[in-house]
């Protein structure tokens, strides 16, 4: 499904935004989408898509979300998962992706 979307729209025009409740899960999705990790069990298994992956709680994304929506949808989960740690973890994969491209 996701693979089809990438083929249709082109990876350079797309971004994946995820909402996992922990950093390990976020890394797993990022690894799968960036490198096509074959150990993953979801609809993304074994597909290297070259998509940038961000978590909705990362500071760069969160900064663009209106305050009322942030409060309604995200504030509580931001107490469960550290946004700064998320950014550090996912930046690794985005870097790998850009290295791959060049």
């Amino acid at each position: 499904m996701v693979k089809k979307l990438v083929e249709e729209h082109g990876a350079e025009n797309l971004m994946m935004i995820i909402g996992t409740p922990d950093i390990e899960g976020a890394e797993l999705v990022a690894e799968t989408v960036t490198e096509g990790d074959p150990s993953y069990a979801g609809p993304l298994a074994g597909v290297s898509l070259g998509l940038p992956v961000y978590h909705i709680l990362e500071p760069a994304i969160r900064a663009e979300i209106p305050e009322d929506l942030y409060k309604e949808h995200l504030a509580m989960m931001a107490m469960v998962i550290d946004p700064q740690e998320l950014e550090t973890a996912l930046a690794k994969y985005r870097k790998k992706k850009s290295l791959k491209k060049s």
Binding site: V2, L5, H9, N13, L14, M15, M16, I17, I18, G19, T20, P21, D22, G25, V29, L51, I56, L57, A60, I61, E64, I65, P66, L69, Y70, H73, L74, M77, I81
Partner: peptide, 28 residues
């Protein structure tokens, strides 16, 4: 960063679900 960008929203049951991600990023 988000304005005009095409997004695949991939939520999780125990974290932030798909419809929540959609509401937030569409507003951006």
């Amino acid at each position: 960063m988000l304005n005009g960008v095409k997004i695949i929203a991939y939520g999780e049951r125990d974290g932030i679900q798909g419809p929540s991600i959609v509401a937030c990023v569409e507003a951006a």
